[in-house]
Nucleic acid binder design. Structure first.
Lengths: 230, 230
DNA sequence: ACTTCTTAGTGTATTTTTTACACTTTATGT
DNA sequence: ACATAAAGTGTAAAAAATACACTAAGAAGT
């Protein structure tokens, strides 16, 4: 442990992560059941302490993999929570993040410190440990805001998706109905979706065309001053 | 000092604050010249360590007052910087904030740890200590984004202001020219400005009407689903 | 083969919002 | 009274957002 010339008391610093997924037309949140005190048995966001000389991004990747088996996902910093009484163990600051994973279809794996891990419909969350309810609320507001002016929604869908799936995702996040024709006009008009020439298979009705998000094109347009907006 | 049951190494945690002001038609940033190593003599953002069991908001208020004599200003969390090499003293995480102060007219007072404090035009910043250049860049981007969909610009103006002053402020932040008539139509159309029935004094031309931002009305409208947008 | 069911896919007219643009008014200073 | 400087004001054209309903395709059941 590096010595500090300054004698300030130092808080423990953790990260907590609100991991969102999308499945069955619902926006979902990944929670783990705590295997140890404090709040043993309670549902909580996956989280953990920042290791020495570890940047928080690294902590997030590590924690998501260790606690929930989640790998290579999109995430961003959300807010740093510093209330002095937020953790019964003492002075713990949390750098909260939110993450978006493709497909909340299959069960997450409970890892270290977790008795159980599973997806919850964001509208039916259980009571949560620490100040995690607060963090979740912050994360949902952020997601709702962000999804409208940055193309982050695609992180929640499989690489190949239909326009209806995309629309339903937006409807779930924004909690409003969108007009089908207007939605398509707008999203296709941006030129960010590449039509794959493939169609859905194993559907009991007309198969929809599949598209993918063209990240390269997005960067190109962004550099030219384009602003995504839904 | 509270004992921790957990033996994790703990970083020092500081706050740094990008304080913006507006004067002479220019967006300005408050910097202090460091009185001590590291980076003694270099310009830097006002900042300081979080004290034990102190929430970061409190640290911000304290630091701004102690280092720069700034009191009762609007501020918000910006981002938490966690690169492991950002401070030569060792492992120091910084919860960066930005603040908006009314009138960058008068000189700030250099306080503890500062040899000097003064306003810089954001377009003519000196080289900065630590990763503060990075923080400033983040803060400016945030401000530019925020000012368009939240009425934070008013925090940079005196309580009473003319529409031209308001427009020029927006032009300085957004770095674009705005059409006078369209700007007025839009901003007055929101119904957030209270006309005070007063006029400018001591101006060598037609005096402009003065307005103030009506925060109560804004809350009211916001609750009804109104979204500020410029 | 035909019918039924379910979702995909498509265009237009109306309303609203955004943009572009120039002259008159009011006050001060000489 | 004249020059100077910024305040204040309306309208027409273009663009964007909205509202809205039927046909097409494919699978499943009879």
């Amino acid at each position: 442990m590096k010595t500090h010339r300054y004698t300030h008391a130092r808080p423990s610093v953790s990260i907590d992560c609100a991991v969102f997924g999308y499945g069955d037309g619902l926006l979902k949140l990944l929670l783990i059941r705590r295997a140890a005190d404090p709040y043993k048995g309670k549902w909580a966001l996956p989280g953990g302490f920042i290791h020495e000389d570890e940047a928080s991004d690294h902590t997030v990747s590590r924690v998501l993999f260790d606690k929930a088996g989640v790998k290579r996902v999109f995430f961003e910093q959300l807010y740093t929570f510093t209330s002095t009484n937020r953790d019964p163990r003492g002075w713990v600051i949390s750098v909260a993040h939110y993450a978006l994973v493709k497909s909340a279809g299959h069960q997450p794996v409970a890892g270290k410190g977790a008795e159980e891990a599973r997806w919850f419909d964001v509208k039916e969350l259980p009571s949560l440990a620490f100040d995690h309810k607060n963090i979740v609320q912050t994360a949902m507001n952020r997601l709702k805001g962000k999804v409208r002016y940055q193309p982050v929604g695609f992180e929640l869908l499989p690489v190949k998706f239909s326009l209806t799936e995309l629309q339903q995702l937006y409807e779930a996040i924004l909690e409003t109905a969108l007009d089908k024709r207007n939605f398509r006009k707008k999203i296709l008009g941006m030129g960010l979706l590449r039509e794959l020439g493939e169609k859905q298979v194993n559907v009991a009705h007309k198969a929809a065309k599949l598209y993918r998000f063209d990240a390269v094109k997005y960067k190109e347009l962004t550099n030219k001053g384009f602003h995504f907006e839904l």
